[in-house]
Amino acid sequence: MATILSVKNLTIKFGGLVAVEDFSVDVQEGELLAIIGPNGAGKTTVFNMLTGIYKPTSGSIEMDGKNLVGMRPHQFAAHGLARTFQNIRLFHNASVVDNIKMAYTLHSSEKFFPALMRTESVVEQEWELDMEVMRLLKIFNLDQQADLLSKNLPYGPQRKLEIVRAMMLKPKILLLDEPVAGMNVAEIDEIASLIAQIREKFKMTIILIEHHMNFVMPIADRIKVLDFGKTIAEGNPGDIQKNPKVIEAYLGGGYHAIA
């Protein structure tokens, strides 16, 4: 396995407050890395740095031998980092199909003037894109809702759509920010099998943030635990479960007990 993302000493300060300190990780191709930790530990902040939404105060994010720090979010996406959001951020007034097509903008070769005239070749491209999107939706069982406005989808499918949309970017790494937040048991199982499917079918490398231990433990290859912005533990799920520091962080933080 090769390292495809190398993060070194990522630190970010807001005002005088250090939100994340010295976050380092080498992500291996094909692995599923989970980042866990109590509320406010800085997990989402790490994601925001890994996708260019926040610029770290110091540290580096290397992909393909290039440091991405300082680039804009869309450039992070172009380098193969696609994400979902904790508070769902779909394009609400667009249909399910269009939501996914929007994530194809980067790869589309449609040119402005032909698009203005809607030439035969543009129609052809639109047709091929539509079929590709429909195939993807079928894999994830969303093809029946294709023409629905995304805001009219129920909560569970909205989360799923966000993942499918990120897949349309054809990323190297998929970053999932609390993919099962607010879901019931059946829905959680569905997302777990969806993630398994993505790994199997697309050999996707995944980084995910989650509170839900029952969800994380069986699927993660490796876990990093954050508390107050610092990495307090790292290892395979079995080790993490036994680590006293982790138990302390969770119980001491008054957060729900580790399962």
Partner: peptide, 19 residues
């Protein structure tokens, strides 16, 4: 589509590779 994505959620649009 890129315009509508920006209109509906600019942060998500950027994260989806839209400049």
């Amino acid at each position: 589509r890129a315009w509508i994505a920006i209109r509906d959620n600019e942060i998500a649009a950027e994260a989806m590779g839209i400049d």
